[in-house]
Amino acid sequence: MNIRQNWIKRTIASGSKVRIKRRFIAYCLGLMSVAGVFCTTAQAEYGDIVLNNYSDQAQIRPVIFPHWFHRIRYRCKTCHGDLGFKIKAGGSEINMLKIINGEYCGACHNGKIAWAMENCDLCHSAKPGTPTQAHKSSKQSLISPQPVEKK
């Protein structure tokens, strides 16, 4: 206890200016190190699909489809067999009209099975300008994302 108190006395007894300086330096170091941890390259989850066929033109955030969330609840076959989703990022050319008609996402995202389409921002949640991609796919790491040809 005595040693600790002595150490404190020594560190803070040398005048308020030094104390403020030390505190400032400590704070700065702390901030820098925290920033260093958080500024490493960020990556989303393997299999996250970004869909930006029409979003940027419509001035809304592109869609992110998290495969991981859906595969916990459904087998691949429900979407890629029954609902007719193409196994290609952006290949199904989904638009809101199709969803309103109960096709593709609209088969479940209708307010009965999953949230309804008025929750625009939950799907349209990507940074504006993010290209259509299968995030972290081996193809993406070999070839940069290509725009999907529209018919």
Partner: peptide, 19 residues
């Protein structure tokens, strides 16, 4: 480092209401 939080995963808009 593989599992990032949605806020700073690089593709989600950190300003968006989904975060």
């Amino acid at each position: 480092k593989a599992v990032q939080s949605i806020k700073d995963d690089g593709i989600h808009d950190p300003q968006g209401p989904a975060v």
